[in-house]
Design a protein around this nucleic acid. Structure first.
Lengths: 357, 357
DNA sequence: CTGTTAGCGCGTTCAT
DNA sequence: ATGAACGCGCTAACAG
């Protein structure tokens, strides 16, 4: 069907290997033959067959990026970080979406292994070791993003979820809040657990009893945020602040608040984890622990490319990215709500390693 | 490195072809040998090599989907429609993002042709024929999404941009608006031109002079929406309504309005084209011409799969998807703004083929 | 039911 | 400076 290197060779009156040399700029080719070959190539609209190349080289120069939710701009931003760096190094990236569904994830894993991708960048659907082991069993390098994997020796790049949550909650406490509800993600995912841990540490540090804890686990999506927000708001006394464990949960919470008729921050404070897309940063502007999504993609790709380059195995590395506390309107200020203890002083922003916008 | 079909054969004491038959369930294999082969497969952790298969078959069972902005949920929704249907039929999808950049687009085209994908689903960076011709020159089926391509014989699936814009503007006119600004996309893209055309037709039908037209071309992104909104609002007398030609432009416009201190819909009306993600549907709820993104992906994939199945070429087809007018808060109601002519009657919603939410 | 042969398109190795 | 032969991993076509 489509012309092969042989067709080009015939047309140019040379051997196939000569065409190969022209294409790859390898070995010596005289000016004359080179010109004839190039003419034949454009003439026949020849397009080299990567499949055959990869089969020979046992290298595809393709990386697989498996994320859990492609509609979440956090992940598309990560994807850009991955793709930009990978492209610079001559790699293509295949982006796959699992919807946090392990079956889907494992299906993709098989397909991609069969395609002989050179390496994996994986956001595991659950914080479990199997998918990583599956990949490693094929001697294919893999880097895990965002989530901790107990019991797997693997490179990992993630954000400081615990610390980010801790600082966010400490800020709320400084504003005087005493009833803060967490709308968290799935307990099977380390980030959800870590963010709750940070919340707990902040509460404990403030000398609050465990009874003050209001934790609602769920999923990292809008529906869950909506539902858990309603649940949290039904508890008495009503929380004076909500902590959404990711951006979609925050959006669901906003909707719930809108339904109930509670204004942010006048009636209740709302803070969240994750970067919220530009689009939503309209009204109300959210106070949040912002992750460096693009950087996460970049660093993970760096690690993977290193593994690919040097084949002598080094110890697994873990990169924990800092989280920025960004203070905006949605957290309100002290005394904005009547229910807040009026005796608290408002700590300066710098205390929380935060920037204001 | 990784075991081949030959290694499995050796381990099971059979010929390679027998292993192949077991894997593909083709031909006859006795229960006994099948069991031995399967044992060897799991034993060696054998993973078939798709590269070699594809080389033999001259078929990869991979489709390429090239979109212009992966951060726009409109396109991720389309992508889901594509992927779901493709997967059902045993195809994998490679998702590529061009950022409306022709150079990027052409680079992807080359890479994907080299990878020998079986078909293309293309959202062209510009409404130009070259990329389509490039693909067709290789005898690879291609379906164009969203945009019209003058001078190319190609299947296309798009929305009724002209009609959607027309109905949206007619609704604004019925509310009494007379100064309506369009914040459009690039003139090189048919959807931008079509939406302006619909706007013009609505104005003309209402007997308004061409001088009433306020058209601002730009890009399909937030910055452009922001900038053009500021420009539009600076014209005198100030428009009483803005029509954003896509969702990101609407978001930029919202930001501009927020900066200036204009409220929607109290001070000014805002309507837009494209579906706006769930997330943004918080406040203000936007009145819009909503496209059927998922369906667009599905239908385009259907056309492509048909081409793939039957190789006798049929005439190019064009599918124009209907656009839903969804009326919500952001358009306000008649007389809400003092500047509106108070003598217009408010046409019933049904008149516009609209639904209210 | 199972095996042998041959070739998909390309590039390395070794000649010329 | 150019070419012939071989093999990457897999399977269709044809034996047996």
């Amino acid at each position: 069907m489509s012309p092969t290197i042989r067709d080009v060779a015939r047309q140019a009156g040379v051997a196939p290997i000569t065409v190969s040399r022209v294409i790859n700029n390898s070995g010596y080719v005289s000016q004359g033959t080179r010109a004839r070959v190039e003419a034949a190539i454009t003439d026949l609209r020849y397009v080299p067959n990567t499949l055959a190349r990869s089969l020979r080289f046992k290298k595809t120069r393709v990386l697989a990026l498996i994320v859990t939710d492609i509609t979440n701009p956090f992940w598309t931003t990560v994807a850009r970080g991955v793709e930009d760096l990978a492209n610079e190094h001559g790699f293509n990236v295949i982006l796959c979406n699992t919807d946090e569904d392990e079956a889907k994830q494992n299906a993709y894993l098989q397909v991609l292994l069969q395609k002989r991708v050179d390496g994996f960048l994986l956001v595991p659907a659950r914080s479990a070791a199997e998918p990583v082991l599956t990949i490693q069993a094929q001697n294919v390098p893999v880097v895990v993003l965002d989530r901790q994997i107990p019991g797997a020796a693997v490179d990992i790049v993630r954000s400081d979820s615990e610390g980010g949550a801790y600082r966010l909650i400490r800020y709320l406490l400084a504003l005087g809040h005493r009833r803060i509800a967490v709308l968290s993600g799935p307990q099977t995912i380390s980030t959800a657990v870590d963010r709750v841990a940070g919340y707990r540490r902040a509460l404990a540090n403030a000398g609050l009893p465990p009874s003050a804890e209001l934790v609602f686990y769920g999923a990292y999506n809008i529906e869950s945020g909506h539902q858990n927000a309603l649940r949290a708001l039904a508890s008495t006394p009503r929380p004076t602040a909500l902590f959404a464990a990711n951006n979609f949960i925050a959006i669901g919470a906003l909707r719930a608040l809108d339904e109930i008729g509670l204004r942010v921050p006048e009636d209740i404070a709302l803070v969240c984890f994750d970067d919220v897309p530009l689009w939503l940063q309209i009204n109300p502007f959210l106070t949040m622990a912002s992750q460096r999504a693009y950087l996460m993609g970049q660093r993970a790709t760096e690690l993977l490319l290193e593994r690919l380059a040097s084949h002598n195995p080094t110890d697994p590395r873990e990169i924990v990215l800092p989280v920025d506390i960004v203070i905006r309107k949605s957290s309100g200020s002290i005394r904005q709500q009547d229910t807040l203890a009026p005796d608290r002083e408002c700590l300066p922003v710098g205390e929380f390693g935060a920037r204001t916008e």
